[in-house]
Design a protein around this nucleic acid. Structure first.
Lengths: 200, 200
DNA sequence: TCTAATTTCGAGCGGGCGTTCGGATTTTCT
DNA sequence: AGAAAATCCGAACGCCCGCTCGAAATTAGA
């Protein structure tokens, strides 16, 4: 996750991080449309304007870059989910808020999401990815607990809660493949629709 | 799709196709768990027991092998879907039957499915994959028409049919990531649950 | 049994890829 | 201005991978 040589002088950290963030975003875009393995370092240097050496100043390695993309995606989402789920109010309201936040996050990070989804098989095996596995698992647990609370409160009922959860995960994880920011449907509308589907 | 040198003598065709099918299945398994790019020809020779030359006798090239996996997956499903959708009876019954067939097909070809899903970004760009794009599109159209027929018959109603279709595709396409043949849920149960969700 | 077709072998080739590294350039701070 | 830190360059390296090819082994059919 950490790049090779971040500047020690604090005044330069900001510029460094900004530039690094640009590089990661550019890479996410390329990876999303061509695939990680099908994108070469040459493609990356062409897209960023940096030469190989300059690029490695920021990314450390190609695989670390991939990890950075997924980190940038999951890191802010999980605390937000915790926060929303822990807030007061009925489970259904909590769920709808969480779905909104989730889908807005997806809409704002389509490329990152597509890359993350693409690398599922790496996620499940490589020990370097263990912390991401944990994060994803906790996120799914938060969702599941919300559904369970809804059942306990009597406002939701599912024939099979765990299957409903999987269906929900499926819908949402598929969304980046067709969602377009300029498209007909907003993230909020989609979130509401998905909620209606499983709560009906 | 066609390998390099299929035998001309018809008596040998059967054995050749059988062996070839074995190779494709083995490859699908490896690709599904490690990823296409992360699986080397060396891995393939080790898993099949064939040496490099022998392997290429059946696969033609690594990319052609990937295409074969996806072909074997989609080729039988589409005609079956056409048949089911065209059969007489109310739309809801047609849809349920199609979902059953679909999920049983997934259950029977988990590896192929995972590989196909993994290569989404290739599917959408490479001209070599055009016929697979067409097949998938037609399959989705069949589904959409079934939903539309349900609405016309008055037995289904959706706030937004195209979004419901996308939700359904999401659920089903995600299924191979958790479905296990020895698991708690059968393909039939899952299909019914999914139908219930969108028809509620 | 003899021949031709088929299947298999495996060393080796050519190329592309990720990465390195020494130095040049630019920037920051005193 | 001067020194130290940070940024960037790009040629070059070594490795690994997909693939080839001529020959050997096996099998089918007469």
């Amino acid at each position: 996750m950490a790049p090779v040589s971040p500047p020690t002088r604090p005044a330069l950290r900001a510029r460094y991080e900004r530039r690094r963030h640009e590089v990661v975003a550019t890479a996410a875009q390329l990876f999303a449309e061509r695939g990680y393995s099908e994108t070469s370092i040459g493609d990356l240097t062409a897209a960023t304007g940096l030469a190989a050496g300059g690029l490695y100043h920021y990314i450390g390695s190609k695989e670390a870059l991939l990890l950075s993309i997924c980190d940038e995606l999951l890191e802010p989402l999980l605390p937000r989910a915790r926060e929303i789920a822990a807030a007061p109010g009925p489970a259904e309201r909590r769920l709808r808020e969480l779905m909104h936040a989730w889908l807005e996050h997806i809409e704002a990070h389509l490329d990152h999401m597509l890359v993350f989804a693409q690398e599922r098989h790496v996620l499940e095996r490589d020990p370097q990815w263990a912390h991401l596995r944990r994060r994803r698992k906790e996120f799914e647990q938060i969702l599941d607990e919300l559904l369970a609370r809804g059942e306990a409160e009597g406002t939701m009922s599912f024939p099979d809660r765990s299957m409903t959860l999987l269906a929900l995960l499926g819908m949402v994880n598929y969304t980046p493949q067709w969602l377009r920011p300029a498209g007909r449907l907003s993230a909020a509308e989609i979130a509401d629709h998905y909620c209606d589907l499983i709560l009906a």
